[in-house]
Simulated assay, not measured.
Amino acid sequence: MTAPLVLDQHLCFKLYSTSLKMTQLYKPLLAELRLTYPQYLVMVVLWEQEGLGIKDLAERLQQDSGSITPLVKRLEAEGYLVRARDPKDERNRVLTLTAAGNALREAAVRVNQAIGSACAISYQELEQMAAGIDKLNQRLSR
């Protein structure tokens, strides 16, 4: 019989604790932009591809649309985006950034620079870690 794994041998704990630290690193930087971390992720996707529907956004963020809708409503209340009916599907809402939402993109670049600096890793190390995490994510999605 083998001894039970200790906490530091659990991959799930390493991912969890790192995720918590990363989120805490983002928190004060995003507070200046009046964004929570989940709202920031929504904005990142919309800066990448504007005009998505809620369903497509949820899929991109690997969430269900019920979790995304409240985030989108708060971002709309902040004046960062507008929800409009999708002409192809009346049940869906298409998301368009406002001028304020687009202007926030510049501030987000500074957030990314601060995060990169705090992580103190090379671009090559970042690519290797990201590739490993992507591989794990894909395997867990099966």
Rank of each mutant, 00 (worst) to 15 (best):
Q49H: 13
L29M: 09
L35D: 07
N102R: 15
D89V: 01
L97E: 04
E76H: 01
C12Y: 08
Y37H: 15
L33W: 04
H10N: 12
A58C: 15
G101K: 03
T96C: 12
K55G: 05
E90H: 06
I68S: 03
V44F: 10
V94T: 09
P70K: 04
L61M: 14
Y26N: 05
E76L: 07
L95W: 08
Y40M: 12
I54R: 01
A58H: 10
T98Y: 05
G66A: 14
T96W: 15
Y40K: 05
S19H: 06
S67G: 08
F13W: 13
L46P: 15
M43G: 14
A58D: 06
M22T: 06
H10M: 08
D56P: 02
L104H: 04
L95S: 09
R60K: 14
L25A: 12
N102H: 15
L29C: 03
G53I: 09
S67W: 08
R74D: 14
E90G: 04
Q63W: 00
L11A: 12
Q62A: 01
I54C: 03
G53K: 03
L41R: 13
L57A: 06
K14T: 09
L46E: 13
A31K: 02
G79I: 04
R34W: 08
L25S: 13
L95R: 11
L71H: 00
Y40H: 14
G79L: 09
L46V: 12
C12F: 10
T96E: 15
Y16F: 03
L33M: 10
D56A: 06
L11Y: 10
L61A: 07
L11S: 13
C12K: 12
A84F: 00
P38C: 04
L41D: 12
V45A: 06
L57M: 07
R83T: 03
G66K: 14
E50W: 13
V94L: 15
R83Q: 08
V42N: 08
K88H: 12
E32C: 03
L33T: 05
Y37F: 15
V72W: 00
P87N: 04
L97M: 08
Y37P: 12
